[in-house]
Design a protein around this nucleic acid. Structure first.
Lengths: 335, 335
DNA sequence: CTGAAAGCGCTAACAC
DNA sequence: GTGTTAGCGCTTTCAG
């Protein structure tokens, strides 16, 4: 049951392991006839070099690591991470790289996740969500000059990153609501400590201020559906707006439930829009107006950037992708 | 910038590499004092053994592979694969295993995906969707006695697998519709060549026959949303049922769109139920009645089974998990 | 253009 | 209990 090795190929081709290794790595300095003969053998015997041996000798794994949050239901009401992961995996495959996945249930977990995977030299580069990352790991990576890119900007951890235009998208969506005639617009935002949240809040405030409307109508909540619901309920009770801008897809289900419980009709009594689109939005009643993020492109951009770093090239420090406003039934003219 | 190696630890602890290796692997035959000293050093220096070296010497990678379909939008209207992947990754992490992801855009792609990952000895075991698998790979794995488990039963490729109770779930959901008084019930099913589809059709037919209703009201379609829509449109035109049983989550969006275009009201003119639940179903209007699969448990079961195989134990040949009927607003009494 | 040989960092006998 | 040593399968100088 022994696997076939480079030695076997070498013997059959009547050359040395070194020569086989050269053709394996597409290196120069092999006669065209010899190369052809070896290639044929490799193909016939369906030979695949042992990754561990290659990794050990060449000091690379041909894997890139991805650390994403796997916190229960969190990721599931949103297609963000699955889509991103798909894009990353596909793009990596183009360069013969596989994706090594690491789960991170909690912030603390990131550290152990990240350690084995990285320090064990299982990966040659890393893509990590800015919000799943701690200062300790970041400093460590930087120190050892390990190639990594962050998905999403981090304020405290400056590094190469890809992101969508949170501020601009948020501003434009707010303007959309203002154009519709809304004056009392409230933003339901995620946790205030996240930069993505702050950026979206900023876009909101910019648009509101410019229109001479109250820019302080922002309420923060966690990404738990129950919290989102509770917070929305409070908003609707205390000082009901005519339009609600939900700053993240993770909050939509909670907000919808709150609206339902209050018997608030959308869009008549309340216009409702969301940051982050979802395949189901067109099918909800009413269909949901949303800021659509180019998630797939984002994943690809992250991989592109990572490979540049891995190849010691110098990519742009950041890449910001534009978003799109998709107007649907949930946003309509204010009463 | 050299990493620290087992040799460094050995020298500092004034022992040999062998001893360090023993404590690394939790092996016996190390003095309690010595072990403590080495452990302390490992911790202090934050040493992690080089995975490639370990893999090469011990002939294992500490990775398991997962091959899932990554065909564009397909997976995104369903939480099936993301949830499964999460469960797998978490459960694998418990055993210090990482997940190596392989993308498969098409059936042909599976082969290349599977080859590098597997023949390169990057993984010690494999979890693969039954429907993403070819006879060639299957035979190859079997031949070399490589541990793998399939998610979903395959008719042509008998092997260890985990699955949900497709037949039973489908039967019970059909009975639910019958109990509601429906007599003209149509099943919108996925591609007929998939065993999961056939099983769901079987459950449907069993229930229909038992109730002396027409069991042949089954229409097959592909998992493309447009096809699902077109097919549903035809169903609604030709011979409209009072209840539509959508046999897979991937078809729901298309069916809903068709109903909307025909101005068919749910559930009044048409009861609509689905196999496979989704976080959005409770929030659609009406909320969608569904067969809820224990996807997370399914992933865990797959990992459990795989580890048993990897450890040369003999698990049950299959593990079938029960499903749950979640009744919501889209299914109500027939007119 | 090709061969020979020295490792890469670890594990697993086998000694003592 | 602990040290020694022979590889694991590959890459990469260095010769020739």
């Amino acid at each position: 049951m022994m696997s076939i090795t480079i030695q076997d190929i070498a013997e059959l081709a009547k050359v040395s392991k070194g020569t086989v290794s050269r053709v394996l790595n597409g290196g120069p300095g092999v006669g065209v006839e010899t190369r052809k003969r070896i290639l044929k053998l490799i193909d016939e015997l369906d030979y695949q070099p042992n990754a561990s041996a290659q990794g050990l000798a060449a000091k690379r794994s041909n894997n890139i690591g991805v650390i994403i949050p796997h916190t229960g239901g969190y990721s599931m009401s949103t297609t963000y991470w699955p889509t991103l992961l798909t894009a990353i995996t596909e793009k990596a495959a183009d360069q013969d790289y596989n994706v090594l996945l690491s789960t991170a249930r909690s912030k603390e977990d990131v550290d152990s996740a990240y350690r084995t995977i990285l320090k064990g030299k299982r990966i040659d580069g890393l893509i990590v969500g800015a919000e799943q990352f701690g200062e300790k790991q970041w400093a460590d990576l930087l120190l050892k000059d390990f190639p990594f890119v962050m998905v999403g900007k981090s304020m405290s951890l400056p590094h190469y990153y890809v992101d969508v235009d949170n501020v601009g998208g948020s501003r434009r969506m707010t303007e959309h609501l203002i154009d519709l005639g809304h004056q009392k617009i409230t933003m339901l935002a995620g946790p205030e400590d996240l930069l993505s949240v702050r950026s979206r809040v900023r876009g909101f405030k910019e648009a509101m201020s410019k229109a001479h409307l109250d820019p302080e109508r922002v309420t923060y909540t966690t990404y738990q559906t129950e919290d989102a619901e509770k917070t929305t309920l409070q908003i609707l009770q205390k000082d009901p707006p005519t339009a609600l801008f939900i700053a993240a897809g993770d909050l939509v289900l909670g907000a919808l439930e709150a609206a339902r419980k209050r018997k608030t009709t959308i869009p008549d009594q309340l216009a409702l829009v969301s940051f982050d689109d979802h395949p189901f939005y067109p099918y909800l009643s009413p269909s949901i107006t949303a800021v659509k993020q180019p998630i797939h492109d984002l994943g690809q951009a992250a991989v592109d950037m990572l490979f540049m770093l891995m190849n010691k090239n110098t990519p742009e420090k950041k890449q910001i992708l534009p978003v799109e406003i998709v107007v649907r039934g949930s946003s309509k003219v204010a009463r």
